[in-house]
Design a protein around this nucleic acid. Structure first.
Lengths: 189, 189
DNA sequence: GTCTATACGACGATAGAC
DNA sequence: GTCTATCGTCGTATAGAC
C-alpha cells in the first residue's frame, strides 16, 4: 500500500470545514478534492459510501470535537458559573465570533443521507442535554432546565443565522454573553 | 399572446413554497417546473434571469407577505401588548407551529445571487426594525430595543433550526409564547 | 405564452494503470 | 493508496414550432 498523503483526521477536518462553509449540496466532489488535496477517486477509496459517507463522518467528527473542545468544561469541578463562562468562551472561539456557520444548520439542508441526519440529531440532543444538566445544577426543575437548554441552543443557532443574513455579528456576540443567565436564570446576572 | 396558465402571484407563491422546503440548490428546474405546473422553457420566458431571478422575486414576495400577514399589527391602534400578541399568533401560523422552514435560512445557503441576498438582508432588517420599534414603545432606549429585537428574531430562527434538526417543535412553540417578554421586557410577563 | 426537443457543462461515481 | 481518464445522469439554459 502506498502511504497516505492525508491522515484520516486531516481528511475529516477539511471535510467538516468545507461542509460548514458551503453546505452539503454546495460541496461538490471537485470542491472536496481541492479542499482535501486528494483526487475524486482517492476520496472514493477512503469513503466507499461516497459523498453521503463523507457527510456522515464529518458530522460524527464535529459531534466529538464540539463535545471535547466546547462542552468539556461542563463536567469539571469548578464552580457552576465558571464552567458556564468557560463554555461561552469556547462557543465564541468555535464559531469565530459568529463568522463561522454551524454544521447543524448547513448540513441539514439537501440530501446528506440518514447517517448524517442521525448524527446531527444526536449532536443537537447531546448539546441540549449538557446544557439542561447545567441548568438543573442552578436549581431548576427538569422541565424548566430542558426549556432553558433548548432556548439557549436556539439563541446561538438563531444568532448565527441572523449574522449570516445581515452580516452583523453583534447578535452572536450578545448570544454568547447572555448564555449564563439564559441557562442559569436570573441568579447568574 | 396565449393566456397565462399561471398568474404571476400563483407562480411566485409556488416558488417561495418550494424554496422554503428544499433551499436554493435543492430546487432544481425540474422540481420547479413540477411545483409550478409550467415547463422549464416557459419559466425562462417568465423569468429571463433564470433561477437566480426566481429566487430574487421569491424573496421579494416573502418580504411583502411577511410584512403584511405577520408584522402588520405592529402599526395598529391597539394596546402594545395586544399588538405583540397578535404578531406572535401570526408567527405561529406563518411557520405552521415550527413545521415550515424560514426562507431567510433556506435561501441563504448556495449561490442564489446578489439580488436574492439583498432582499433577504432587507427582510431581516425590516423585521428587526419593527420589533425594535415595539421594544422602544415599552420604554427601552434605542440600543436596548435593537438588542431585544435581534434577540427575538434570533430566538425564532434558532428555534426553527433546532426543530428541523431534532424534529421537536416544542422549542418553536415556546419561542413564540415568549416573544412578548423578549421584546417588551419583564413588564410583559 | 407555452410547448417539445436539445445543447452543453457539471455532477456523483467508476475503471483500471501504477 | 493515489492517480488519469471516463462513464451516465442531471443540472441550467436555449432554439424554434405552435
Amino acid at each position: 500500500m502506498a502511504p497516505r498523503l492525508v491522515t484520516d483526521q486531516q481528511l475529516v477536518e477539511r471535510l467538516t470545514g468545507l461542509f460548514r462553509q458551503v453546505g452539503y449540496e454546495g460541496a461538490s466532489l471537485n470542491a472536496i478534492a481541492e479542499a482535501t488535496g486528494l483526487q475524486k477517486s482517492s476520496l472514493y477509496h477512503r469513503f466507499p459510501g461516497g459523498k453521503q459517507q463523507m457527510a456522515a463522518e464529518a458530522s460524527a467528527a464535529v459531534l466529538d470535537e464540539f463535545a471535547s473542545s466546547v462542552l468539556a468544561p461542563a463536567g469539571r469541578d469548578d464552580p457552576l458559573h465558571e464552567r458556564v463562562a468557560a463554555i461561552a468562551a469556547n462557543l465564541d472561539r468555535f464559531y469565530d465570533g459568529g463568522a463561522r456557520y454551524c454544521l447543524l444548520d448547513m448540513l441539514s439542508v439537501g440530501e446528506p443521507g440518514v447517517d448524517a441526519a442521525t448524527n446531527l440529531a444526536a449532536a443537537a440532543a447531546a448539546w441540549i442535554d449538557i446544557f439542561a444538566a447545567l441548568a438543573r445544577e442552578s436549581g431548576a426543575d427538569a422541565p424548566t432546565a430542558l426549556a432553558r437548554a433548548q432556548d439557549a441552543v436556539a439563541a446561538i443557532e438563531g444568532a448565527l443565522v441572523v449574522s449570516r443574513v445581515t452580516g452583523d455579528r453583534d447578535a452572536f456576540t450578545r448570544a454568547v454573553r447572555l448564555l449564563p443567565q439564559r441557562l442559569l436564570g436570573e441568579a447568574a446576572a
